[in-house]
Amino acid sequence: MYYTKINQENCIACGLCQIISPALFDFTPDGIAFTRKDENKGIIPVPSEEMDAFRKAYQQCPTGAILRSEEPFERQA
């Protein structure tokens, strides 16, 4: 199980994550990506049916802005 969020400081608004995984990622009005299900908090796990698309987006993000964790991000120190 993975949790994900976008490091918005690293996002270059290329659109790749949203093209690959539109159920997980969307864009702010400024074009910066965020995770849809939890407003980029990284507290809701990636659904199993979205895992393949998530992995592909994670691997192909040109700036490494897609973060992943095995636990919710808010629990990390």
Score class of each variant (00 low, 15 high):
residue 1 M to L: 04
residue 1 M to S: 07
residue 2 Y to M: 03
residue 2 Y to S: 05
residue 3 Y to G: 09
residue 4 T to P: 05
residue 4 T to Y: 08
residue 7 N to H: 04
residue 9 E to F: 09
residue 9 E to Y: 07
residue 9 E to P: 03
residue 10 N to I: 05
residue 11 C to I: 05
residue 14 C to K: 10
residue 14 C to Q: 05
residue 18 Q to G: 14
residue 19 I to M: 15
residue 19 I to G: 13
residue 19 I to D: 15
residue 22 P to Q: 15
residue 23 A to E: 14
residue 24 L to H: 07
residue 27 F to A: 13
residue 27 F to K: 12
residue 28 T to V: 06
residue 29 P to Q: 10
residue 30 D to A: 08
residue 30 D to M: 08
residue 31 G to L: 04
residue 33 A to L: 03
residue 33 A to D: 03
residue 33 A to R: 02
residue 34 F to M: 07
residue 35 T to H: 11
residue 35 T to A: 14
residue 36 R to I: 15
residue 38 D to L: 02
residue 39 E to M: 11
residue 39 E to D: 14
residue 41 K to C: 11
residue 42 G to N: 11
residue 43 I to D: 13
residue 45 P to W: 05
residue 45 P to K: 15
residue 46 V to E: 04
residue 46 V to T: 08
residue 47 P to F: 10
residue 48 S to N: 12
residue 48 S to A: 15
residue 48 S to K: 13
residue 51 M to D: 02
residue 51 M to A: 03
residue 51 M to Q: 03
residue 52 D to T: 11
residue 52 D to A: 14
residue 53 A to Q: 13
residue 53 A to S: 14
residue 54 F to W: 01
residue 54 F to P: 00
residue 55 R to V: 01
residue 56 K to Y: 00
residue 57 A to T: 04
residue 58 Y to V: 02
residue 58 Y to R: 02
residue 58 Y to G: 05
residue 61 C to P: 02
residue 62 P to V: 03
residue 63 T to E: 15
residue 65 A to M: 04
residue 66 I to K: 00
residue 67 L to P: 00
residue 67 L to A: 00
residue 68 R to C: 03
residue 69 S to I: 00
residue 71 E to S: 07
residue 72 P to W: 00
residue 73 F to M: 11
residue 73 F to S: 12
residue 74 E to P: 06
residue 75 R to Q: 06
residue 76 Q to G: 07
residue 77 A to E: 13
residue 77 A to V: 09
